[in-house]
Amino acid sequence: MSREAYGVELEPAEPDPKEEGRAASHDLDWERLARAAASGPQDREDAALLREFLTFQLAGDPYAVPVERVREIVRMRPVTPVPRVPAALRGVISLRGEIVEVVDLRLQLGLTAAEPTRTSRIIVLHGDDGKMSGLLVDAVTDVLRVTEEAIRSDGQGESGRVAALCVRGDQFISVLDFERVLDLGDEL
């Protein structure tokens, strides 16, 4: 997609996760993405009309969340399962001592389940109340700048978890509804 246009050099997907100091690397990805976002094209449209999304892959398709919700992106790390919760809640991770729940976005969107791979990342979002949540995705791809008119609020699915579709050339990117995507129901 827009990778060439912005000259974004995404983090190569090969680093060996087994030893590398995890604590040190957790915001590496995000830093790179943020830098990429900052060095956008010179001839960008009116800033007021721009919106920014973090895009990622799920089962081969592109999805996006608003950049302002993203707190950091962390590599896959051991997730501690939590009993008595819906399967889509994969478990909890410790983020420098803070305990954050991780939602398996594949399961949450009703896609086929898959075990995390080396490219898998946890996108840590922050809510209005300052509380954090994590989304497990297949791979983080890009920071996307689009104008408001590229966002179509028609054509979203029935679950309500996709708030809009963003049109990039001939490709649709599903923009997630932040609130609903974290709604695991009251199955407790």
């Binding site: 939590v82 909890v92 001592g97 305990i99 954090m132 949540s133």
Partner: peptide
């Protein structure tokens, strides 16, 4: 002991988590 942050937060039988 830290509270659990996220969509569920309250799980019967679990009061929090720790590292």
């Amino acid at each position: 002991i830290k509270p659990i942050q996220g969509p569920i937060q309250n799980v019967r039988g679990v009061t929090g988590a720790t590292e």
